[in-house]
Design a protein around this nucleic acid. Sequence first.
DNA 1: CAGGATCCATAGGGATACTG
DNA 2: CAGTATCCCTATGGATCCTG
Lengths: 135, 135
Amino acid sequence: MSQHHVTTAPAAATPIDDEERDVLSPNCPSRVILSRIGERWTMFVILALSRAGTLRFTELRSRVGEVTPKVLTETLRALEADGLVERRAYADSPPRVEYSLTPLGESLLEPIAAMREWAERHVPEVLASRERATG
Amino acid sequence: MSQHHVTTAPAAATPIDDEERDVLSPNCPSRVILSRIGERWTMFVILALSRAGTLRFTELRSRVGEVTPKVLTETLRALEADGLVERRAYADSPPRVEYSLTPLGESLLEPIAAMREWAERHVPEVLASRERATG
DNA sequence: CAGGATCCATAGGGATACTG
DNA sequence: CAGTATCCCTATGGATCCTG
């Protein structure tokens, strides 16, 4: 993620008729979002929050059961940085922090649902095919 | 990927009210497909094939410009194993191999489109947010 | 042409232990 | 409670060179 691959062909008349090339850019919309939701715990966090509305750090953890705090924190920070999740910290003692989806995060639920539907309908075939291939 | 987490609760009245837990299974439909399309070159290959219909190995490469043959091969093999891409080899000389989407692969274009639309509409916000966060 | 074979770098994830 | 702080490991992806 630290590479830039500066495709800055300056003012030269670069014929950008093809959207194909776009897919390769680190800033390609699809890539940005797909690489984000493709990460290990992202989907879980988003779906958990979409159901619960609001969850505290430990609640989130307990729904997974296997995430280490470090990794969960990283996931949440990334989602927060992307504006998909809101982190609200209260100055209580003991500390209390609540996570929830932002409107932007909620808007993502729709394409996610489409993907899930496809997955539920077709992944059995994928798995079968995969098994045939590897044995 | 070697775990199974066989969710085959036979006849036992296992209260599978929560789909949440499912997300964690390696065989969770969503995870299967998301981790596949989340891989570095998968989307590119699928989209390229969806436009061209059929492409040879080198044609595919030239559309990317940066994939090494090894990685492209791995990507294609994975897609093939999943039944999303068809590989047709002709016994010519020089060798000729053509890749295309299977019907299953084509059916995936729909949810992908939904995701792309969301991405194109909202990723600017994500990027802006991301910039605000990291500076 | 369409890869196979090798070697290598790194990042994503994880295990553990500790703290404001 | 809600995280830090460390150390560590493997898989993914890449660079290179070679070949049926």
